[in-house]
């Protein structure tokens, strides 16, 4: 055998030591700079996402594709108990016609049903049927002023979110009270929650009690956004 090692053992040990050290250093500095990197690239990524967003309906799945066990329950704090009879949805802000709607009011409006994929920021996804009222119909009723560009959602558990107007008036962005053909459960956001195929799960607030239309983005953009998630969260 005339096998000739292409690198000496010493060299190999030196190199593996160096790469090991860099990995360790990387491990220590994990969250270092990640906020800055996010801030540097969020505008570019957001422009790309806004550019890709279209008002055309997203192709839906057949009801046979629904995955009832895959929709995990995520809550940032508590699960509020809301009396459906006492429940009121407030629509306010820079609108000509602020209003309060009961669940009965919402249920007399046209019902839209969709079977879409719900995608969580964590990486999992579930095909879900949602039934409810188009948010664009509600916004239309409230008659927003022409300078309105953002929609805020306040939830009974203290969760808060803000959306761009284009995503909010997408024909499949709904305020839903049905899931998989049954009334929405409390864990899933009853009596009323947001559901849309064009946003990640953390944008889809549960237990929504207040919708505010605004021309400016407020400093508090959303519960998870204020922890460091990107604001647009588009799909």
């Amino acid at each position: 055998m005339t096998f000739k090692p292409v690198i000496s053992r010493r060299q190999l040990l030196q190199w593996s030591g160096l790469s090991g050290a860099s990995l360790l250093l990387g491990g220590c500095a994990t969250s270092l700079f990640s906020e800055q990197v996010g801030q540097a690239f969020e505008p570019l990524n957001q422009n790309l996402q806004a550019l890709l967003l279209s008002q055309k309906p997203v192709p839906e799945f057949p009801t046979s594709a629904i995955e009832p066990n895959k929709l995990l329950i995520n809550t940032f704090d508590t699960t509020p108990q809301i009396d459906p009879l006492q429940f009121r949805l407030q629509i306010q802000g820079e609108v000509n016609h602020p209003m309060q709607l009961s669940l009965a009011d919402l249920q007399t409006m046209p019902l839209t049903s969709m079977v879409i994929r719900h995608v969580c920021v964590e990486g999992w996804a579930a095909i879900v049927q949602w039934g409810g009222v188009r948010l664009q119909d509600l916004i239309h009723l409230a008659q927003p002023k022409s300078n309105v560009r953002y929609v805020y959602f306040k939830s009974a558990d203290g969760y808060y979110e803000s959306w761009d107007l284009a995503s909010a008036v997408h024909p499949q962005t709904l305020m839903v009270y049905q899931k998989n053909g049954a009334p929405l459960s409390i864990e899933n956001g009853a009596p009323l929650r947001l559901a849309s195929p064009v946003k990640l799960g953390y944008k889809q607030s549960k237990w929504v009690t207040q919708i505010t239309l605004l021309s400016q983005l407020m400093p508090m953009k959303g519960y998870w956004e204020d922890q460091g998630y990107e604001w647009f969260g588009g799909l």
């Binding site: 990995l23 969250s31 906020e35 990197v37």
Partner: peptide, 22 residues
């Protein structure tokens, strides 16, 4: 294990991932 990860948490990891993708 932590020493293989970059970002410190999910949000940080996504920041790096969607920056380096470009």
């Amino acid at each position: 294990p932590d020493f293989l990860l970059l970002g410190g948490w999910l949000g940080g990891g996504r920041n790096w991932h969607f920056a380096a993708m470009w």
